[in-house]
Design a protein around this nucleic acid. Structure first.
Lengths: 156, 156
DNA sequence: TATTGTTATACTCTATAACTATA
DNA sequence: TATAGTTATAGAGTATAACAATA
């Protein structure tokens, strides 16, 4: 049974896209009962873990553009999971905090997400999971270095 | 230096998203000089590799919806890389073929994509790359089985 | 009736420019 | 002048319903 995407299967990028689609789909199904999506769960978690986090810092951490974060935080605030409070020293900025309700939801959703994550790597040995994690970090890093290369060659 | 996304870093899915973003960004930069995107390159390659491929089959192979494929093929046909010809036995269907121009572009772009793919896994040993590939396939497969589970529980 | 390709449409995600209020 | 958050907007990518032609 020769697969029609045999050539593409030779690329790590193709396998990665298919694997990531599987994860994304299962994760969104996992989070839907909590009224969360991938990005809102990610924001909620980072805010809970980081005291006095500002919007621009959160955008940096999650590699999303500042304008796109605004609507996400509006959504979390409307759901009473997160609050924006003025920073005392800089009246331009907001400090982000989770509400009690937000903390509780984050905990419960976190359990579900951990289950989901384990489900996705089921059948892989502990060592294989370790190698996978190493490889993914390395690929992310390789991407940053080729970013630089591209930026330089575009400038000159 | 405690990272603010430490909790998220514990998930394979989070590492995968970041790694895939890096790949996607580098791949699109790689393909832009050829006038191609990830999806158009994928279509071009599968069509070149598969004689008498039909649109619905291509959509199945690449897991994209039939309506979305129409515009992609319009784009490839406008660029004179691919042709739609009526299937002799079934006048509803089209058979897809690459033109000579399409074949040549696919070859040249393929070289660039292979370079890109190797760049992304630079620093990983041959064994680590093998484990990575195994793991990604496994995750994709795990996603399909939880799809089934979801579908069943949704039905009853 | 079912299938192939198509149209129309809508929703999410992402990216950029320009604005406001502060610094 | 530069920065934090915001608004408006536009481009991808993705998903579904409904249609015409054909099986």
């Amino acid at each position: 049974m020769s697969e029609r995407d045999a050539t593409l299967r030779g690329y790590v990028g193709y396998a990665m896209k298919r694997a990531f689609n599987a994860i994304q789909s299962d994760l969104n199904a996992t989070l839907a009962p909590f009224g969360l999506r991938m990005i809102t769960y990610s924001c909620l978690t980072v805010i809970r873990d980081t005291p006095r986090l500002r919007q621009s810092q959160l955008a940096d951490v999650l590699s999303i553009e500042r304008p796109n974060l605004v609507l996400i935080l509006d959504e979390l605030e409307r759901a009473e999971l997160v609050e924006r409070t003025r920073a005392p020293n800089d009246r331009r900025a907001y400090e982000l905090t989770v509400t009690l309700k937000g903390r509780r939801l984050c905990d419960r959703a976190g359990d579900a997400v951990r289950d989901h994550d384990l489900r996705m790597v089921a059948g892989l040995s502990e060592e294989e999971r370790l190698v996978l994690d190493t490889a993914l970090r390395r690929i992310e890093r390789n991407g940053r270095t080729t970013d630089d290369r591209t930026a330089h060659s575009e400038r000159g």
